[in-house]
């Protein structure tokens, strides 16, 4: 598994909001079921001293760090303040920062991710469901009942489409090592390349599914990394029927200036020798061939 395991002590920023409190509970239910450390502290400015489902809340990340020395943070802070929260977590030395928040202005994301990377932190997201390593750690909002532990790593720009694929994999008896939702924004922290580099060093992971969509060229860069690292890879690209210059739900899912459309991505991947599934339902059989 990558980015987190059973021992990962988790911080939640935006702990007292609806989403934060709800997912602290779910993350800790999961941690209890697998014997993991789970969420040990929360942060909401002005709410220090309270607790959420038994988890102590602090005003600042530094105070939470001094008491709990967490390794990962999950951010549910509203869009206007979320980039600042990413930088606060990085500044306090947290290694893995998962930003669930949607609609953060892209200039804020660029600045926060650049700062976090300069601190040596990995940012997952924003606008993502986080990650889940079955049997180890739920670091985000993915619905854990669909998952099963096994040899396939999954990296995706999407949320529900990932659950669809994970559900099909589990039904086909193919388990997952870690499933990472890297986010649907034009600028994100960890890309396909970063995840593939980590998966290539993970002993549990034997092959990877890459779920991409229209916009940008991150899928191609990811596939190049997988080839150079000899990591077996199957891809699926959503948006073959998406029109040009229209944002398809995700801020990053847009074909701009005639670039980043699904057909040319699929063509380039196939030219590199990568297997591309035409439909999500084909992924289990295609990945089985590589195991």
């Amino acid at each position: 598994m990558i980015y987190c395991d059973k021992h990962t002590r988790i911080l939640v920023q935006g702990a007292t909001g609806n989403q934060g409190a709800f997912h602290i509970d779910l993350m800790n239910q999961y941690a209890r079921s697998v014997g993991g450390a789970g969420v040990v502290a929360g942060v909401t400015p002005g709410k220090g001293g309270q607790d959420v489902h038994g988890v102590p809340v602090y005003d600042t990340v530094r105070e939470a760090q001094a008491a709990h020395d967490t390794e990962a943070s999950v951010i549910f802070v509203p869009a206007g303040a979320a980039a600042d929260s990413i930088m606060e977590a990085a500044d306090a030395g947290i290694e893995t920062i998962v930003a669930i928040t949607e609609h953060i202005p892209v200039h804020d994301v660029m600045r926060a991710v650049a700062y976090a990377r300069s601190c040596g932190s990995a940012v997952i997201g924003p606008n993502c469901p986080g990650l889940l390593s079955p049997g180890e750690c739920r670091l985000g909002i993915m619905p854990s009942p669909l998952f099963q532990r096994g040899p396939v790593g999954v990296i995706s720009r999407s949320g529900t489409l990932t659950y669809e694929v994970v559900d099909e994999l589990t039904r086909a008896g193919i388990g997952q090592s870690t499933v990472v939702g890297i986010g649907g924004d034009p600028v994100i922290g960890e890309t396909f390349v970063d995840c593939i580099e980590r998966f290539s060093e993970d002993s549990l992971t034997k092959a990877v599914i890459l779920i991409g969509e229209v916009g940008g060229a991150l899928e191609i860069e990811g596939a190049e990394a997988a080839l150079s690292l000899d990591l077996p890879l199957v891809a699926y690209i959503a948006g073959i029927s998406a029109p040009k210059e229209k944002r398809m739900g995700h801020a990053g899912a847009i074909i701009e200036g005639g670039e980043g459309d699904a057909a040319s991505k699929i063509q380039r991947l196939e030219a590199m020798g990568i297997t591309v599934a035409a439909r999500p339902s084909e992924l289990p059989s295609k990945i089985r061939e590589l195991l």
Partner: peptide, 13 residues
């Protein structure tokens, strides 16, 4: 979800 909805459109096509 954007990905699932896009994928539904693709399946229709």
């Amino acid at each position: 979800g954007a990905g699932l909805t896009m994928s539904t459109l693709d399946l229709i096509a």
